[in-house]
Design a protein around this nucleic acid. Structure first.
Lengths: 150, 150
DNA sequence: CCCTAACACTTGTATATACAATAAAAGTAC
DNA sequence: GTACTTTTATTGTATATACAAGTGTTAGGG
């Protein structure tokens, strides 16, 4: 749907302003959508994100800063986020031997299993996206957004 | 910067997954950026958004649902958001005569003045965007994002 | 060895947000 | 008018988040 209809607005100042709002709005929209799916698995999208990051580096552990650098949302709640996931048994954390300031965080079997369960679910919602845009089009989006953040 | 570098990640599953993350990440990035600017004016980006919505409809007032419909973020905190702005004297609210369930919310002179002060500031940060992408390119982004949300 | 600075993480606190429950007014049916 | 439903907004509560201050660890200089 056009952003104008989405926000019940008749006009924007220029295409730049519209793009700005459009990206923020669409990002939000996608986030809400995935959060909705993840809720059934009792995961927030941030938590899911952290788990995927850990799977990505597995079997090597990561420390908090590593995770923070890779997160979509760079706030300083990484400690508490990781703690939540630890309580659910989805990851482990132990003090690093060589540098005791650091912690080594690793995804558990249970975490891996949960992600494995989620993969096809996420894949399925990806499919809807596939039907709306061609590969060439998403490619264009990726190129332009990367350029925008330069 | 490429999303891969931004998130220190080597690869994504496919262009669709990358686009998904790219849009969310870039939206976030833009939000953080504008929030930073607005902080000097003691406004959150949501509050700013509400003010602009009210200016858009001025001199007609809006009720809470109208505002909610036009917001980027459709949560149910509209009551409290509006109350915050009222405390700052940036808007007024009064019970609607014809339908006393509704409230009529209107931007004040002070609110108008604040937005007027902010216009050039925001415009300036728009300019940075302008330097990164051509009009044709932002047009493409707008078209593709609208299509994505169809 | 001591002092200071930098680092990696944690915690406190104030604020924001999501979601559900509630309240009050209006509309509808009888 | 009374009972029911719907609309519109508010409040309560639990959780999340941002930012600053604090803790413990390591590193470097003298």
């Amino acid at each position: 749907m056009k952003l104008e209809e989405e926000l019940k607005q008749t006009r924007f100042k220029d295409e730049y302003q519209k793009a700005m709002l459009n990206i923020i709005f669409t990002g939000n929209w996608l986030e809400v959508w995935t959060s909705q799916i993840l809720k059934q698995y009792d995961l927030s999208s941030q938590q899911f994100n952290v788990l995927r990051i850990l799977r990505g580096s597995s079997p090597s552990p990561l420390n908090l800063l590593d995770i923070q650098e890779r997160m979509m949302d760079r706030m300083s709640n990484a400690t508490r986020l990781v703690e939540k996931l630890r309580q659910k048994g989805l990851l482990t954390r132990k003090q690093c031997d060589s540098n005791r300031r650091k912690v080594e965080i690793e995804i558990t079997e249970k975490g891996q299993a949960l992600l494995k369960e989620l993969d096809p679910v996420m894949e399925k919602s990806h499919l809807e996206l596939t039907q709306k845009l061609t590969v060439a089009e998403v490619n264009t989006i990726n190129k332009l957004l990367d350029k925008l953040r330069d």
